[in-house]
């Protein structure tokens, strides 16, 4: 037991370390900005004195590492900084959008995960059948298509031609839950298509790998039914790979949301990030990148820890 706790602690420590490095990289981004970003804000015409005053106000005259820890400390206290373009605190901009993004991702995941797992397991069980081949080709096409293609086809058919859904996913805080789901169905399905294909292929591969183990053959030779072989002999060993598949794809989904948000002009964090990159609104870019990176790294970390925890060799050491 001590051993497994140690391994989990190691993974956690590594995750925290990577988060630290990533935050440093994101912070350093400002330092590397050509010229100074004071110039970018104030323009070339600013006098020496205004520039100095502004630098002092921002604390840019102090060493970078001190500012880094202040930046990090502020974020931990909930103060995300100030957007110069929007002329308001970033908290106002980010929090609602973060909620929107997470809502969309959760919506898509709720559709994608069960379908992908089901199809993946079925394709693995009926390997090389017509069903399997069809599912594979469809999945391959879905993976190979850019998100915006699926999005525009859906918009064209269901929004423009049939008029069932709006072309743009515009939401407000006081919107009813059911209405929100309706408005967000097209973006959620778009996001689902790509992730689902990945998830299905990975599930299929890990189940096939599992079914080739001699202990599955042994269960067959003990006269066990197919159902029991899957439920009792395959699934307990499939948890680790499947959790892994789901977590990796959720991470992918949260990042993949950027393009979908832009297509549907959805007020999420991805949209904000893209706008801020075009405007070179550095503090906002930093915060948005940090949020995406933290989510991505945490999910991958979670997958890693789950697979450690579900390994009987580690769970019951000699």
């Amino acid at each position: 037991m001590i051993h497994i706790l140690k391994m989990v602690a190691q993974r956690l420590a590594l995750g925290v370390f990577i988060l630290f490095v990533v935050s440093v990289i994101i912070f350093m981004a400002v330092e590397l900005l050509p010229g100074d970003f004071v110039d970018a804000i104030l323009g070339q015409a600013a006098t020496e004195a205004t520039v100095e005053a502004f630098r002092y106000q921002l604390g840019l005259d102090r060493p970078a590492y001190i500012r880094y820890f202040e930046w990090l400390g502020d974020i931990f206290q909930g103060d995300l900084g100030y957007s110069f373009r929007a002329q308001r605190p970033i908290d106002d901009l980010v929090l609602l959008r973060l909620y929107n993004t997470l809502f969309l991702a959760a919506y898509a995941a709720a559709i994608a995960v069960p379908i992908a797992l089901l199809f993946g397991v079925l394709a693995a069980m009926y390997r090389n059948s017509f069903f399997d081949r069809t599912v594979n080709v469809v999945a391959l096409i879905a993976i190979s298509s850019p998100e915006f293609l699926a999005a525009y086809i859906l918009i064209f058919v269901f929004a423009v031609q049939l008029g069932w859904f709006p072309t743009l996913a515009q939401v407000s805080i006081d919107m009813e839950f059911g209405e929100r789901l309706r408005v967000l169905l097209l973006p959620a399905v778009t996001l689902t298509l790509v992730t689902m294909a990945h998830m299905m292929r990975m599930t299929r591969a890990s189940i096939i790998n599992l079914l080739s183990h001699p202990y599955i053959e042994m269960a067959r030779l003990k006269g066990m039914s197919n159902r029991r072989i899957i439920v009792r002999h395959a699934l307990p060993n499939a948890i680790a790979p499947i959790v892994n598949v789901v977590a990796i794809n959720l991470a992918y989904m949260i990042v993949g949301v950027v393009v979908v948000e832009v297509v549907f002009v959805y007020p999420g964090l991805g949209q904000l990030l893209v706008d801020s990159v075009s405007n070179r609104d550095m503090p906002v870019v930093q915060i948005a990148c940090l949020i995406f990176a933290v989510t991505y790294i945490s999910l991958n970390l979670l997958a890693d820890i789950c697979s450690v925890l579900s390994n009987p060799r580690l769970l019951h050491p000699r």
Partner: peptide, 13 residues
Amino acid sequence: AIPPLIFALLILT
């Protein structure tokens, strides 16, 4: 560990 799209956006900024 950093999502590629996010990293690319950061650097391109």
